[in-house]
Amino acid sequence: MKKISTEEIKHIVKLSELNLSSEEVEKYKSQLSAVVDFVSQLSEVDTKDVEPTSQTTGLINVLRPGNDIKASLGKEEILSGKDDTYNDYFKVKGVLEKKEE
């Protein structure tokens, strides 16, 4: 059976920006391993010279006419999802840390 290692799960958790306890990591490790093992059956399908599909109705490069511009949401509407804004900006966590002298 296809096994995902604890290290791999931890890497995935980091990429996913999720915060999981070590208990959760173990639980998801076995559940995801089971799913990945199941979907690995695709390796038995011959896909030589087969093009991948990501769009089913055959559309390519759909462009909007340049003169078809609609009004967008106003500032208040955009900010309405958060109570704690600052000077009409969303607040985010600090990116830089203050260097201790």
Binding site: V39, S43, V45, T47, E51, P52, T53
Partner: peptide
Amino acid sequence: KAMKVRSR
């Protein structure tokens, strides 16, 4: 691989 089998 999945996108290719999707074509199938």
